[in-house]
Design a protein around this nucleic acid. Structure first.
Lengths: 329, 329
DNA sequence: GGAATTTGTGCAAACGTTTGTATATTTGTC
DNA sequence: GACAAATATACAAACGTTTGCACAAATTCC
């Protein structure tokens, strides 16, 4: 392994000069700079990043923490963040928490031990408060998607309330009458806001808000099924779902009961996962623009921001929510 | 930031002893070990991994290189590898190449600069040979899924030939007569073998192999569409597809042409991506068991193996390939 | 042409660990 | 109780960079 000292010796200069030359410091003469660069190339020099990081007391790695990597949403957040961070000379270290608090704690500790330059985090469902985030010490943290508003620092979130409002309003305008919601976990602000948006839309339409047809703590396929069956029993004819997987479960459960979608029952999901367009009927979904969210989170880190950025959400209307009536407006 | 020197001073001993105590060396007395551990806890000590890595001349990071993170297949490989590596005390650094050779080269250089303990790689489609892998120097490399057999070191691959054989045989047994294949890129061994398996099945059934109905260089949705239209024109009544996305494109193109699947035309994909079960008709797919592949690749790295491991592939039979005839055998 | 300034390079100390070797202490043996 | 052996700790040198400071040489200024 060739080091800057080797280069220095080969050139009869000191490692400091080599270091500065490689870093492009204006303090070295042009001639020696090109000499160093050529020699480095010739000797096959590879910079030892760990040594540099140790000396500089910080690394060029940014940690990205996601609940689960295989969810399209998070995979796209990662891609977005990576596109910005790589450009700025950073590398990313991706960590999955599997929605578990203890894994999240372990992961944050690891990132801290690596002295990463920053962390972009979307917390696990199991994490009910921001206490454990303090483990990061003074490493800059950007929260995205699922955020704790009581914890200081930059945040990037979807326009959840506004989005859920649009989604629910769309169901109302499609002519559905008793619209429930699969609401997710109230431990996460994102879901709280979606519920708020749903409620706002309902009440704006002059319909009284009915807590009995709000199905909390459902988010995956199986719990979506269960919630849908309850909703059916309660006389609902539509559901706004806080996720696509629970929406998928809902669709399946209803179809098994012989309920026709969208004729008898309307469904809207959230996230606009790839599979939603392939379902029968294709699922209307509130898209979150994860790629942009990742880019924005990365920018927030780079610029050292501490504010909150809101990423618009767009309703992708498909078959599962369009009744025979023509969509008004 | 508290260091082992701080702990040593607080305890009136030397950093070396603290280091050994923390590492669980048998050379330190039980008493001092617990004293060190308690003090470390009390002072909120966090090990500086970069310093340790520098001294040990290797890092605790294993690089995982994937073409695209958002593909279920690779996301699951990552999860599998992570499960084994974390257990063994390693952390993973995930890199996407976006199927581009220059990005792959850049990524490998970065991993090398980080002195990672090892690399698990599935090369980009654009990478046509193994030349650029030498950039890793003496860092152990495990190739998985897409591998270069001419490059030394451990490899973990799916039973592509055998799998494609099963998939094609299934189409034959379902009663399809003229079976083509969307074959992918012949620059990648995985696709070469799938084609070989297809051919073997065809010929074993006494059907002459017909290169005219082998559609190469198709792998994504759009190219799958194009290939399917050509196959239709050529009089095919079935296609074995080397991927699920090109299979999806094929299904869509055929359906638009009014071709009924599976009645008029049979389709089998490869990878068993999540969405295949949600399509109409549900897509029969040759599943690759990516989670196991990731685990195996990680084990190959840990054990320093240099052999080739083959992961069985299982055919998930769904509607897209079952004609009215009963499946023989 | 001497003083002041600029420019380029060298020196050496850090960054926080790990680890081979040396030393001090304890234990065991006869 | 002297000596060997085992045990536990200390010493000090690395690992490969970066960077503040010092210093020499070259340039500028009056």
């Amino acid at each position: 392994m060739v080091t800057i000292t080797d280069i220095a010796e080969a050139l009869g200069i000191t490692p400091s000069t080599v270091s500065r030359a490689l870093a492009g410091s204006p303090r070295v003469k042009e001639d020696t700079r090109v000499a160093v660069l050529r020699k480095a190339e010739e000797m096959g020099y590879q910079r030892n990043i760990m040594a540099a990081n140790l000396r500089k007391r910080r690394s060029d790695i940014v940690g990205i923490v996601v609940p689960r990597i295989h969810r399209q949403f998070f995979a796209n957040v990662i891609s977005g963040a990576e596109s910005i961070l790589n450009e700025a000379g950073y590398n990313v270290m991706i960590c999955q928490t599997m929605e578990k608090l203890d894994v999240e704690i372990k992961v944050l500790r690891t990132l801290r031990n690596h002295q990463v330059a920053g962390v972009l985090l979307s917390h696990a469902i199991e994490a009910r408060d921001s206490k454990h985030l303090a483990a990061l010490g003074n490493i800059p943290l950007v929260q995205y998607d699922r955020v704790f508003f009581d914890y200081p620092g930059a945040k990037v979130v979807g326009a959840n309330c506004e989005g859920a409002f649009k989604a629910t309003k769309h169901l109302i305008e499609s002519g559905y009458r008793k619209i429930g919601t699969i609401a997710g976990f109230m431990t996460s602000q994102a879901y709280v806001e979606r519920l708020a948006g749903y409620r706002l839309a309902i009440e704006s339409a002059g319909i009284p808000f009915n807590p009995d047809i709000v199905y909390e703590n459902a988010i995956v396929r199986e719990t979506g099924r269960e919630a849908a069956l309850k909703a059916l029993e309660a006389g609902c004819d539509a559901l706004y779902c806080c996720g696509d997987f629970c929406a998928l479960g809902a669709v399946e459960a209803l179809q098994e009961k012989g309920v026709r979608i969208p004729e008898d029952f309307g469904i809207v999901g959230t996230a606009n996962e790839f599979f939603t367009s392939l379902m029968t009927p294709a699922l209307t979904s509130l898209g979150q623009n994860p790629y942009e969210m990742g880019r924005e989170a990365a920018r927030a880190f780079l610029e050292g921001r501490t504010d909150t950025t809101v990423i618009p959400m767009e309703l992708q209307i498909r078959s599962s929510s369009i009744r025979n009536t023509i969509c008004q407006k």
